[in-house]
């Protein structure tokens, strides 16, 4: 999908430029964009090193496990059909915790593990269970406490207050998460295959 989108962005650009006699402007824009991506990339490295460093300390100090313990009761409420001590539950909790701390790279492998565990409990292997759907919806709007990449990018772009966005982003994602979970629970009753 992204391959098509990227191609059409460029194709539409060239088509518009050719008809509007703006090809020389586009040439200039390409060269300029290369220059600005290098400046941006260099600015980004510093911020990412800072936040990944801090988050590594959080990871090693067991802060991740602490948060996992905190969200466990909520997860049991959301997934009553799963055994509380199952490894599906464990992997899902670790995945969501990693997402909340902005550890996106750690979150994906844990999420894939969770899907495998959920699939073991699935009786119709080709069709998603309610738990899988809900897990994906939670993944579509995880509340992020430390949006490391965005803050780094903001510093790199010269922001006077890169952390300003933390609270508004948390509120917005909580709204998205709540509405997402409610819609998911409502839709699962009408979406056919039930396990």
């Amino acid at each position: 999908m992204i391959n098509k989108l990227w191609f059409y962005m460029i194709a539409i650009a060239v088509a518009f430029a050719a008809t509007g006699n703006r090809l020389s402007l586009v040439t200039e824009a390409i060269m300029k964009s290369m220059q600005s991506s290098v400046e941006l990339g260099l600015g980004l490295v510093g911020g990412m090193m800072l936040w990944c460093g801090v988050l590594k300390v959080a990871e090693k100090s067991g802060l991740v496990d602490r948060m996992a313990a905190a969200i466990r009761p909520v997860m049991r409420l959301l997934f009553p059909e799963l055994p509380a001590k199952s490894s599906a539950m464990g992997s899902m909790i670790m995945n969501i915790t990693s997402n909340m701390l902005g550890l996106g790279n750690a979150a994906t492998p844990l999420g894939l593990k969770a899907m495998q565990e959920l699939q073991k409990l699935n009786l119709r292997k080709e069709s998603a269970t309610n738990a899988m759907c809900l897990f994906l919806v939670i993944n579509a709007a995880p509340p992020v406490f430390i949006p490391a990449t965005v803050m780094s990018l903001r510093s790199s772009a010269g922001s006077a207050n890169p952390g300003f966005i933390i609270v508004p982003a948390l509120l917005a994602s909580l709204a998205a998460l709540t509405v997402g979970i409610i819609s998911c629970k409502l839709l699962e009753r009408v979406s056919g295959v039930v396990r």
């Binding site: 080709e126 994906l136 993944n139 579509a140 998911c184």
Partner: peptide, 30 residues
């Protein structure tokens, strides 16, 4: 950027990894 997610990508990869074809209401809710 920080309060939304890459849902199409996540849905494709997560369901793809376990071979699920019928994703039911996931996309709508996401």
């Amino acid at each position: 950027m920080s309060s939304t997610e890459t849902i199409f990508y996540t849905i494709t990869v997560y369901f793809g990894s376990v071979g699920i074809r019928n994703i039911r209401h996931t996309l709508a809710a996401a």
